[in-house]
Nucleic acid binder design. Structure first.
Lengths: 147, 147
DNA sequence: CAAATAGTTTACAGACTCTCTTGACAATCA
DNA sequence: TGATTGTCAAGAGAGTCTGTAAACTATTTG
């Protein structure tokens, strides 16, 4: 039950980009060096984030990446879903990418014990990650609701 | 961010075994048939659960598996950790299998934003799964604290 | 004892994913 | 034009996931 390196790198890269929001462009190698991320892999990740509409890129001399959306409006949940897909621990409790269980004898009955507890888990995860913005995140550890 | 089929099958199998706790032995194919689980794969899972001390097995005619521990004392968190490893979404926030970050620039500083939020996530997951017993689980959907 | 039953163990196969690299290409700027 | 920087497609290598297969051991029944 792990998040991928991709997601982790994406979040770390976004710390840098949030720090430069509305300021300057950041190049791949700057981000890679500061956050210690393999640069070619990072590139893929930045591209994915760009294609998802979070970043803008500029080519050529003095080019680089910048955060397109306000860091107040982007949540960690959004970022992780872009890289890792749904937060839900099993497909049949995902709200953004629901998939019907194929082999569960309780499928469709609304009485599946597995589904019930996994939905709790999904909601707990989403409650945290969908309410945590890049601004919160880049500001570093701070008071949060309750653990 | 998915739990494996192994964990899901394990939980479904344990519903059956909890239902027969202190009653009769259940054979692989009974469990497999009722829960619609590929029998040879199920076998591996039951073995793993047995080796973890949750089940007892008996060979020969009339053999089968039974739950060894009281279903009140076994939590879903325990089961999932046996099959899928730690609940934590990244190694550096696992309480049962901590692993130091290798590439994080904040490693060891206690100021890592990623670590901070992921710890929240880990705790949210563990709070649910480590407080949900097989008895709760096999009893089916019921009132739980708060979602 | 013999045969049937049922769990045990080991091996592995196919598909897929994860992490990362490579190389050719396109746009921008000096 | 040439250097810089992002874009895109492909794939390599290792590992994991989901299962299958086959030989083995223990137990019970007859």
């Amino acid at each position: 039950m792990r998040f991928s390196k991709k997601s982790e790198y994406a979040l770390r890269a976004l710390i840098e980009l949030t720090g430069q929001y509305n300021r300057k462009l950041l190049q791949r190698h700057e981000i890679g060096r500061k956050q210690n991320i393999p640069i070619e892999f990072l590139e893929q990740i930045l591209l994915t984030l760009k294609n998802a509409g979070l970043l803008a890129a500029q080519r050529g001399v003095g080019g680089g990446y910048r955060l397109l959306k306000s860091p107040d409006t982007v949540t960690l949940g959004q970022v992780i879903r872009i890289l890792d897909g749904p937060l839900a621990p099993i497909g049949c409790v995902s709200k953004t990418a629901y998939q019907k269980c194929k082999d569960c004898p309780h499928a469709d009955t609304k009485n599946c014990p597995v589904q019930h507890v996994m939905l709790d888990v999904r909601n707990a995860i989403a409650d945290i990650l969908d309410n945590y913005t890049l601004s919160d995140f880049a500001a570093g550890p701070k008071k949060r609701s309750l653990s």
